[in-house]
Simulated assay, not measured.
Amino acid sequence: MIRPWFSGDNGRRRLRTLALAGTVLATLFLLWQSDEPASSRAPSSNLRGPAEPDGFVVGGQYRSWDEQGNLRIHLTSPRIEQFEDTGIAHLDQPEAQLFSEGDPTPWLIESNTGKLEQSSEQLELTGNVRLIRQAGNAPSTLETEALTLDNSNGTVYTDQPVTITEPFGVTHSTGMKAWINERILELNSRVEGHYETVR
């Protein structure tokens, strides 16, 4: 009687050894086939494109406090897109409340878009920018097309034309700078005002 080479205990060992060897060979073959140079693998930024954000926030809020723990800025936006490489966040329809020392009434700022540089805490606002300052019963409004908020210095400024509407008149200027804590507004050039006299 002829016994097959894989019968019995010796045969089972040979069969297991053969199966193990086949598995190892198949694994080595698959590794060899998938061995792609690292340089040919595209980073995720190439796949999504340079204009696409690394992440986004819906209904985002940003707050900043001074050294004493007092709230200085409260910024909200329906959508914020973040770009990690540049440290910049793009904001849709941002609205901000700016608090000055000793005054519980904040300045209000709104615009169509904004760009926040996270390292310098500078917020560049563009498109229908409005800065509203509540003074007594009637607010004063500053309107321009571009405005920069420098949170580290507590200033807002622009070199664009501005229109300031107050309860008793309107002022036009090209460029301005305001210090929030000191409540000082400096108009740069081409200042023209129309005021109603109080009787």
Rank of each mutant, 00 (worst) to 15 (best):
N137G: 15
D85E: 14
V24K: 11
L149Y: 14
G55H: 02
S40P: 02
T171A: 08
G59M: 01
G114E: 02
I80T: 07
I73V: 14
L25C: 12
S152G: 05
P37L: 00
S119H: 09
G102M: 03
A42P: 05
A19Q: 11
T76W: 00
T158S: 15
Q93G: 01
R48A: 02
L108N: 12
S7K: 09
T171R: 09
S173G: 07
N10F: 09
V162H: 06
R190P: 04
N153I: 04
R3A: 06
P43G: 00
V24H: 10
P50G: 10
W65F: 15
E95N: 07
R79E: 04
E182S: 09
R130M: 09
I164N: 06
Q122V: 10
T126V: 09
S120F: 06
Y62I: 04
F56M: 04
E166Y: 03
T76I: 05
P53Q: 01
L30K: 05
V129C: 05
Q160R: 13
L20F: 12
R41T: 00
I164L: 14
G49P: 00
Q122G: 07
E52Y: 00
E84C: 01
G175D: 03
L125S: 05
T23C: 14
L116P: 02
S140L: 10
R14K: 15
G69W: 02
F168A: 13
F99R: 00
N46S: 05
A51Q: 06
T144D: 08
G59Q: 00
G102Q: 04
S111Y: 07
V24A: 15
Q97I: 02
